[in-house]
Simulated assay, not measured.
Amino acid sequence: MARKMRSGVIGGAVALAAALWLYLVAGAIGGAIPVNRSWTPPKTGVTIWVESNGVHTGLIVPKVAAGIDWRPLLRPDHLADPRFAGWSHASFGWGERAFYLETPTWVQVRPATVIAAALGSDRTLVHVDHVPPPRRTGADVRRIVLRPEEYRRLAAYLRASFAERPTPERGYYKWDAFYAARGHYSAIHTCNAWTGAALAEAGVKVGWWTPFPQMVLRWF
């Protein structure tokens, strides 16, 4: 009996490792296949940024640009310190509720939280940080210039990710908040896949499937 149990545990571990390896390989392949192949950035337009903290990616956009004004939705009273609403830009991210609230960085990542989110959840959130525009780009922040119509398509995608009545919740710090969201989170549709899909919807050249942060950033 003990031998059979041991064999079953080993077999399960091997199967799990194989599934994880296949997922990583599939993500690398999906992130390398471009959509919107003919897209090129304009010389002038609306400047946005894609950022990563190593776990979650987000899109930094101006609060007012190309006829889009985010201020009525992202109100100062949603923040622990309303003064931060005076910053000119907002960073948008989307993800599974427990994963978002419990894993602001890799230090807080717990396997049980990751597995539960990967299996699928309809409890999703939009995370918004009020920020100044990035001073410089680097390994974790990339600059993108969009045409006005491309930015409007991006903004429509972002807005559609919010629930119909997006009740705000206080965030990690004094300048961010979470909002109830639409969408089903899973190992297929991760927070990073959402970022890639948002850029693809705008018409930007990006990976076909971007489940990992690196698969988004590599295009910019």
Rank of each mutant, 00 (worst) to 15 (best):
R3N: 08
R3K: 13
S7P: 00
G8N: 10
V9F: 11
V9E: 04
G12F: 00
A17W: 00
W21R: 10
A26E: 10
G31C: 05
G31E: 07
A32N: 11
N36V: 10
N36L: 12
N36Q: 12
S52T: 15
N53C: 05
G54D: 08
G54R: 04
H56T: 05
L59N: 06
V64G: 07
A66S: 12
I68N: 11
L73Y: 04
R75K: 15
R75L: 02
P76V: 03
D77H: 14
H78Y: 12
L79F: 04
P82A: 00
P82C: 01
R83K: 14
F84H: 07
W94E: 01
G95S: 05
G95K: 03
A98R: 15
E102A: 14
T105Y: 09
V109D: 10
V114I: 14
I115P: 05
A118H: 10
A118F: 14
R123Y: 02
T124L: 04
T124R: 04
D129S: 14
H130N: 06
V131D: 06
V131P: 02
A139L: 10
L146G: 12
P148F: 09
E149I: 07
Y151T: 12
R153F: 09
A155Q: 09
L158I: 15
L158Q: 08
R159V: 01
F162Y: 15
E169L: 15
Y172S: 05
Y172R: 06
Y173S: 12
K174S: 12
A177R: 10
Y179P: 03
Y185W: 14
S186P: 08
I188R: 12
W194T: 01
A197F: 01
A198M: 09
L199R: 08
A200F: 08
E201H: 14
A202E: 11
V204D: 05
V206F: 08
V206R: 07
W208M: 14
F212V: 02
R218Y: 01
F220P: 00
